[in-house]
Amino acid sequence: MTLLRVENLAKSFKGLRAVDDVSFEVTEGSILGVIGPNGAGKTTMFNLVAGALRPDTGRVHLGGKEITGHAPHRITAAGMTRTFQLMRPFYSMTVLENVTVAVLAGGAAKRTAREAAAEVIARVGLDRWRDSPTEGLPTAALKRLELARALASKPRVLLLDEVLAGLVPAERAPVMELLERLRTEDGVTLVFVEHIMAAVMRLSDSVLVLDLGRVLTSGAPEAVTRDPRVIEAYLGEDPHAQA
């Protein structure tokens, strides 16, 4: 069953078509990887889907309901939450407080919110940092905090913007494993923008390739990365080489 449907999404900035007629569908419980060279419009597309930007044209449907142009907090309430490429913690709060706020925003009772937040924190492997202020946390911990805060609102669809970027390979593996468990254990549907091809190949059920704001191609990961147009878009580099 299609959970997220994006139709003919377009957005221009001062004449530059950042996202141009992008359509795709995501089946419930599946993982869609979004790749493309820098400037392909991946983050803009994310912002359009998550409500941070209003599209010029096109529609976004979540679970059969139209959410095009809704404010971000309403889209989160409707069941779709995003993370940010650059980590954006609530800087005055500890890790626990960051996640507690998100749990409260999801409508949980104040009495149980902190316990629920502690569970999410344990789930993403942040226990060690739970009571630390966010200032001075290592990148790997901040990335997990982004994830924990997004999970706190119990999303059906999770939009992940380069959740692995900035991590050393040893730190990536557990995060990838966590993402897989979110799908298998919680049934969360994932859409993730990622540069690290190994992760895209391993996690994705299907891959969407953007280039210059348009959908270049989409399909199974192996097929897509062998597509000559994709190789071309990466300026002749073999995308596998980036892994």
């Binding site: 907090h73 940010f84 609530f90 005055s92 407080e97 706020v101 998100a102 706190a152």
Partner: peptide, 18 residues
């Protein structure tokens, strides 16, 4: 708590549903 979150980062606050 929501007001403090919005002070710290408005976009992130909206993204968690505030």
């Amino acid at each position: 708590q929501f007001a403090k979150a919005a002070r710290d980062d408005e976009d992130a606050a909206a993204a968690v549903g505030i």
